[in-house]
Write a protein that binds this DNA or RNA. Structure first.
Lengths: 209, 209
DNA sequence: GTCTATAGTTAGATAGAC
DNA sequence: GTCTATCTAACTATAGAC
């Protein structure tokens, strides 16, 4: 083997730096507005190196998107039929809000891709996500049918949770402007999550947890 | 006067065509990904004419954005203290949902601008929108204080309504993929609005209207 | 007011020395 | 594996005839 471990380490480190820089750039400017030069500058590497590690701009974008989707899938491993509805929904709302707080750039890149018609996420939406969506809305329907919560439409309930939590990442700039502060604090996000849990759970006929 | 009425009519018609084409293009590709040539093709005019009516790409984008903001302001003229809380909130939710259904491209352009940090909407956010936000959240607070609804945080309630309704425009592609249909119907939007009204009003301790 | 032709610039991508 | 220099394509913008 000609690849020593130190070489692999450099490769791993550079790839990570490039992906981090690319996430910021794609978040801030979108795919069309992103500049390979700025990504290189931010990563502290010459532009040609970006092309050494990633064939072209699209390949780099897809690599960033893969990371975002991996994060998304992680957040989805929740809500099972045995759970208490109020506890499960509250935990899911708080988990999604945590992503908006800790990974806002990744969350916005996902929204941006969907808004453009999801040209690079069609398979994901029709595959993994659709399976997850079908299974979890069935669980909610089961809760409804067994009288453990009000008869709300499970699909729209999931959309409500997704949109309300995602909003704090996507509309960060608007919320900050309305609050007259440069950045939201941890306490702001916690208060937002508390409000959402309170309204949504009660709206489904559940006791807040 | 050297400008006859027919000349003004051509100008108005061409500007309208360009703005319509530009809205579609900026929606689909974002500012950075938008191409003046495609806008010209869609408008049925030679590219040079686009530059005749709009100095440059940014000026065209801002003209599109102005139209979007005008639409937004219109939707804001609702909710006053004398209103019945349940009726006012339900009407506002349905009005916002109507915008997501009838002007999805405009709605997405607004989200896209906010997501990039709102570089061209800073004044609007800190001016008109902030005033509106302050006044209307005061109305909601008044409803809370007079015991007409539960003690929910008015700010987060407004964000919830904004995000939940906006979602059906921004995430149109995802929702369609999950439903396995190419396009949402009028009935889909009505069902979505009904679900939102039901959950949000009950979540605020109000009787559905 | 319209449109063809093109100028001027930028950015993605690569060749080739180290 | 790294980096400078450069190629090539694409795009915004404009000049100037009609």
């Amino acid at each position: 083997m000609s690849r020593g471990s130190s070489v692999g380490r450099i490769r791993a480190r550079n790839q990570r730096r490039i992906l981090e820089a690319a996430e910021k750039e794609f978040d801030r400017h979108g795919f069309g507005g992103a500049r390979m030069q700025r990504i290189a500058d931010r990563a502290g590497l010459p532009k040609a190196n970006i092309h050494y590690y990633f064939r072209n701009k699209l390949a780099l974008y897809r690599a960033v998107l893969d990371g975002v989707v991996a994060m998304w899938n992680e957040a989805f491993d929740r809500i099972s039929a045995d759970d208490d509805p109020a506890e499960a929904l509250a935990a899911y709302i708080r988990a999604k809000m945590d992503y908006s707080r800790t990974r806002p750039a990744a969350a916005r890149i996902f929204t941006g891709e969907i808004m453009r018609g999801a040209p690079h996420l069609k398979d994901y939406l029709r595959g993994d996500l659709r399976n997850w969506f079908g299974e979890r809305t069935e669980v909610i329907q089961h809760w409804v049918d067994s009288g453990r919560m009000d008869a709300v439409d499970p699909h729209h309930l999931v959309f409500l949770i997704w949109s309300a939590t995602q909003h704090y990442a996507d509309y960060d700039a608007q919320i900050s402007a309305l609050y007259g502060k440069a950045k939201l604090t941890r306490a702001d996000y916690d208060a937002a999550a508390d409000s959402l849990v309170k309204i949504i759970l009660k709206g489904c006929g559940l006791e807040p947890k």
